[in-house]
């Protein structure tokens, strides 16, 4: 099949970008990224700069890939990253617009590549359980009800690709953030830091210029791991509770 591609080309963070039109040839069994590989091979042969895009595992789990296809993050198939999106879902003559995630918090680095370092900084702010190596008790010492473990896993599946931010009209990171808050908040191991975590992570997201959540659900619709809006409510609950019950930490001698 033949496709008309309009691809966002931007040399680096400082330069202005524009849409450039390409003709591409594809086979129905190719993945979307393989279609771009073939395009890039032909560009290189012509001595042109290939289209830069992030990708790594190509199995839909590392979260590196992702861009907008016709205005939808990761393209038209629900629950699917672009690396797992196959060309059989497109037809001959389709015209496709490829754009990078757009958000103040995700500056474009080149072409379809953006800097998602803000996500790492949100996790660094509190998205963990403080359990230094070697300090753990036996793994079966604390029972975890299966339902809680399963729900924690549902939210822990987040791959940090950034599609939720890209799809949100407000460029909000609420779904990403809530996935981690819920994952850890649903497990007994995450309880001691649960309040603090919600406050710190929400603070970090605010600091990173993400927008606020308006509960519209675009994020849920494009999430390749089907993380649910329900988790955003959980994050809200945790944050509100934590805010209302917040107490200053007392500096004790010998601490820290």
């Amino acid at each position: 099949m033949k496709l008309k591609l309009h691809v966002w080309r931007q040399k680096n963070a400082a330069s202005a970008g524009r849409m450039v039109r390409y003709e591409a040839e594809a086979d129905e069994h190719m993945s979307f990224l393989e279609m771009l590989d073939v395009l890039n091979e032909s560009l290189i042969t012509k001595g042109e700069d290939p289209v830069a895009f992030d990708h790594d595992c190509r199995e839909g789990i590392c979260g590196a890939c992702g861009f907008m296809i016709n205005g939808v993050a990761h393209g038209p198939m629900p629950g699917t990253t672009v690396c797992q999106l196959h060309m059989r879902h497109f037809k001959d003559g389709d015209e496709l617009y490829l754009e990078p995630w757009r958000a103040a918090a995700f500056p474009v680095i080149k072409d379809l590549i953006v800097d998602r370092g803000a996500f790492d900084r949100i996790i660094a702010a509190g998205g963990y359980v403080s359990a230094s190596t070697g300090s753990a008790q036996d793994a079966n010492a604390i029972l975890v009800p299966k339902k809680d473990a399963d729900r924690a896993m549902d939210s822990a599946q987040c791959i940090g690709c950034g599609a939720c931010v890209a799809a949100c009209p407000n460029a909000s990171a609420a779904l990403f953030l809530s996935a981690k808050v819920s994952h850890l908040g649903l497990l007994p191991q995450g309880q001691p830091e649960r309040n603090e975590r919600a406050i710190k992570m929400v603070a970090a997201a605010n600091h990173e210029l993400f927008g606020g959540c308006t509960n519209i659900g675009e994020c849920e619709a494009v999430c390749p791991k089907n993380i649910r809006l329900e988790f955003i409510a959980r994050r809200n609950w945790d944050f509100l509770k934590a805010s209302c019950t917040f107490r200053e930490e007392k500096a004790a001698a010998g601490a820290g």
Binding site: W8, M19, Y97, R102, A105, A167, N170, G211, E218, A221
Partner: peptide, 15 residues
């Protein structure tokens, strides 16, 4: 401010 540059093309997927 969170999205200073709009998409050339944007489509709703589920709102």
């Amino acid at each position: 401010r969170a999205r200073p540059r709009a998409y050339v093309k944007w489509a709703s997927a589920g709102s």
